[in-house]
Design a protein around this nucleic acid. Structure first.
Lengths: 228, 228
DNA sequence: ATAATTAATAATGTCGACATTCGGATGGAG
DNA sequence: CTCCATCCGAATGTCGACATTATTAATTAT
């Protein structure tokens, strides 16, 4: 990786913030494997900035949980145990339920067509695992971001990013996508029908199903998506 | 404030981590007022370290939400709008409910006496608002930390710290403490009886009641606990 | 007198260098 | 041959200096 960064002092982002986004993306998109050490010197020369900027960037990425910083031992891509993966999915299920419950009241009428469009995208990409994962992420993000709480949205999405690799893994089979899309259909209909309780249920089930599939695949020693 | 920091490289904490703890404590204990600017130079000279260490410390404190860092504009003590306070309490209620629900199954038999002791502390300090707030925090922390999820515990406690001033404000009246202690009694009994559903309900109610009191006090223009 | 413009001050952003600690290679004792 | 102590290279921790931007003060035009 030999990409350079704008060193002009623009208004929108400070240098470490830009680097942080890049590192975060790289981790979510599996360009680094879990547990991999992220050496400040390497990153600094890779991005063409000083160690100080990288160091601050790592603190920012740590905030999302994607990176773990150990004193005197540097940063590494967060490696989750099976228990931790389960834990994150559980918490996310709860928060996703809360978000979708709120969404029912918070979604403005103008947002309904987009919700339907995003669901249509999901159906259209049913046969392509990669595309389905992307579409699933998009509609998730839409739901969560329109639930009326920036904090809640950031939390849910952060947990989602931390387990992105497992979600992707789980959506790799057709049966699983069939299950997933059924949940999404139920969720979207509940939202459009104004049934908050039901929406919460579907949202939680959606995450639970993903969790169960991913964990059982892991238990069977399924190939990780990593490629380090 | 003119305190100096161990500059010997000990094993337990790196310098910025120590500073971060101090800053976090200072904010939670109301030594800074919300919105107050935290200048790197000031903090650096106050703690007797360089700006770089302070800067990293601020990133760590930002992780807890106690500090907000704006690009090119530095750090300031996070100032919450009324909506944000409500939002945080709502999310925390949900998570506290989840934690206490789990606690019922996760609490080992050896933890029961301590839970009872912490509740006894609560009753004993009923007449002193300050002491009651401390005891309340202690039993909360115990419950959340024994729910089996480090992540969930950190989240709940982090949200708690972010709204600590409002919780303290709400517990300043006797009627409110009576309400609070009734909820705690119910919660402790539910836990000891092994009733997870009920425990969840009491836990959520506990936070909701705090939220309602704090918000109504704020709406009436109650004196903030700040002293900046 | 007020408002806009500009200059001075003070803050943050970024960097390179030095200090300290970690991890593995090296070598010797049992 | 294995295990432990030691040492060396490499990585992180910390600092002070310089670059750039925000903020305030001064100045001028209306």
């Amino acid at each position: 990786m030999a990409m350079t960064v704008q060193k002009t002092y623009d208004i929108y982002a400070t240098l470490p913030a830009q680097i942080a986004v890049r590192i975060g993306q790289a981790i979510v998109e599996n360009e680094f494997s879990p547990g991999q050490k992220l050496r400040e010197v390497d990153l600094a020369s890779a991005f063409g900035v000083s160690r100080a900027s990288v160091r601050e960037a790592l603190r920012i990425v740590e905030r999302e949980g994607l990176v773990t910083i150990l004193p005197q031992r540097g940063a590494q891509v967060t490696a989750l145990s099976v228990d931790e993966v389960q834990d994150i999915f559980d918490i996310r299920a709860q928060l996703m339920g809360l978000a979708c419950e709120r969404l029912v009241a918070a979604l403005p009428a103008s947002g309904r067509p987009e919700l339907e469009r995003l669901y249509a995208d999901l159906e259209r990409s049913f046969d392509d695992a990669e595309a389905y994962a992307r579409a699933s992420l998009a509609i998730s993000e839409f739901c969560v971001r329109n639930a009326g709480s920036r904090r809640l949205a950031d939390l849910v999405l952060s947990f989602g990013r931390q387990t992105a690799r497992y979600t992707k893994l789980s959506l790799s089979t057709v049966e699983r996508r069939r299950q997933s899309i059924a949940n999404w259909r139920g969720l979207v209909q509940s939202i459009l029908a104004g049934n908050a309780r039901e929406a919460e249920g579907f949202a939680r089930q959606l995450v639970f199903d993903t969790r169960d599939t991913a964990l059982s695949m892991l238990a069977r020693g399924m190939p990780e998506t990593a490629r380090g």
